[in-house]
């Protein structure tokens, strides 16, 4: 039993969007769907002003509201590592989970289309085979990689190494160490989700 999680070191992040794109190509997500967008916000007044970057993904909540909202039981939490997954063979496309997720981590895949318009490119053709139109989609914590002992694509690509992945339940892991050593925050604590993604401000 493990609880896989991610610690994102905001002080390191330079807002380069590599994670966003790496995730898109790793998972072959349909056009418009980004599991890992990087948000921005300006803080301060000129000249003490800056843009603050917030890389995101599914928080793999310990108590996932998406799962509770889903009428078809399509969303489940893996016992062995806490990864929250949507089973698109069960999903009826109600979008309840999309509304229920406080983080905007769920996406609705409506119908097949191409990034360049009508003509769908070969990599897209391959990738879209994995997606059932009319269902909800979200970050899988790269479960397909994790199951092969690899780290998620967004973690591997990050040029500043600000996404750190590991077992939150294992006190020896890097993620646990970082959480002990530095202050961390969860997003939307008010939503009571107990997310497995934590941020170091």
């Amino acid at each position: 039993m493990a609880r896989l999680g991610m610690v994102i070191d905001l002080a390191r992040c330079v807002g380069c969007d590599a994670c966003t794109v790496a995730c898109q190509t790793e998972n072959g997500t349909p056009p418009g769907i980004q599991y890992a967008p990087v948000f921005r916000k300006e803080v301060g007044k000129f000249p003490q002003a800056k843009v603050f970057f917030l890389p995101t993904l599914c928080m793999h909540c310990d108590d996932p509201p998406c799962m509770k909202a889903c009428p078809t039981s399509a969303i489940s939490k893996r016992k062995k590592d806490g990864i929250v997954l949507v089973d698109q063979d069960k999903c009826c496309g109600s979008k309840a989970c999309i509304a229920a997720c406080p983080y905007g981590a769920l996406h609705f895949y409506e119908k097949k289309s191409g990034m360049y318009g009508e003509k769908i490119t070969e990599p897209e053709e391959q990738a879209l085979k994995k997606f059932t139109p009319g269902t909800a989609q979200k970050c899988t914590f790269c479960s397909h990689r994790v199951d092969r002992g690899l780290e998620p694509a967004c973690v591997v690509t990050c040029p500043t190494n600000c996404r750190i992945f590991g077992d939150l339940d294992n006190p020896e892991s890097r993620v646990s160490q970082l959480l002990r050593e530095r202050n961390s925050v969860a997003l939307r604590p008010d939503a009571g989700t107990d997310p497995s993604v934590r941020y170091l401000p």
Binding site: C16, D17, A18, T20, V21, A22, Q24, T25, V156, T157, C158, P159
Partner: peptide
Amino acid sequence: GKTCAKGNA
């Protein structure tokens, strides 16, 4: 092992 958004795309 690092690649930027452009390299990924």
